[in-house]
Amino acid sequence: MTQNNAPLLRVDHLTKHFPAGGGKVVHAVDDVSFTIRRGATLGLVGESGCGKSSCARTIIRIYEPTSGSIFLDGDDISALSQKQLLPYRRKMQMIFQDPYASLNARMTVQDIVAEPLRAHHICKSRAEEREMVIQMLNRVGLNQDHAGRYAHEFSGGQRQRVGIARALILQPELVICDEPISALDVSIQAQVVNLLRSFQEAQGLTYLFIAHDLSMVRYVSDDVGVMYLGQLVELCRADEIYARPAHPYTRGLLSSVPIPDPVAARLKDTVGLEGDLPSPIAPPSGCRFHTRCPYATPMCSEAAPALREASPGHFVACHQVNG
């Protein structure tokens, strides 16, 4: 496949703050920058509440960014109106976390999957639309018998495949997967992830894959970004982050991944995470992780570390990492 080397998605100093009442502000996403190459997958991991989903929703412009820019295929889409955004919506789609809440219970699968076609006036006739929908359903492993059914008649994995069909029927280039497997059974998770991978291979899709399950991220991602309290703390190739995690938070996260082999588990040096995620309304000063970091020094609570290249292709935001 011929590809240009310009990144498909470039996020530049993206910030999203939510008003929390009483003049307070939730720092959901703070100064996040990354790029995704065409055809690659960036895995975004972090604890619940660290701003992964907010980041995704801001990129796809369900939330209005507070500041920063989003470049899709070279065009800045961060300031476009919803109307101007319409052509770009064909290029990026989203797969949602909850396969129960993300499908309208009052619509048949046919209507759900056809909705993007209707919104963009792609089909000239109902017959053509139906044909496209059934073709898409076949590709995700469903068939025309399923088209007339309502979402509540399906299992979680089937629903998620309907969600994937809806997202991919417009043949987007970028697909943002917002924890698409976290609500599914383990056996179904693999099914869905393999489906996503087969689409990537067939169409050269680019994924932003959000998850809190590190083992699954390792399987799907080329690059991995780790988020903590709205900020990106580490960004590098997937194998690198598992082999040589640099940021103390990443190490803590990795040590929390259960290991099936008890002998190997005993040998592993545990740098478990202690304490809870601080409130994003009043994030700690300096390095946001210093309240839980075992290596924190006074400097950490004063100056915020910038994301810098510690070793080639390995970006870390930590004062204690030498590079």
């Binding site: 369900i62 919506r89 990026m92 789609q93 989203m94 949602f96 919104a119 969600g163």
Partner: peptide, 8 residues
């Protein structure tokens, strides 16, 4: 949200 990302 899905409907909005679709562009409805």
């Amino acid at each position: 949200m899905a409907a909005r990302t679709i562009g409805s």
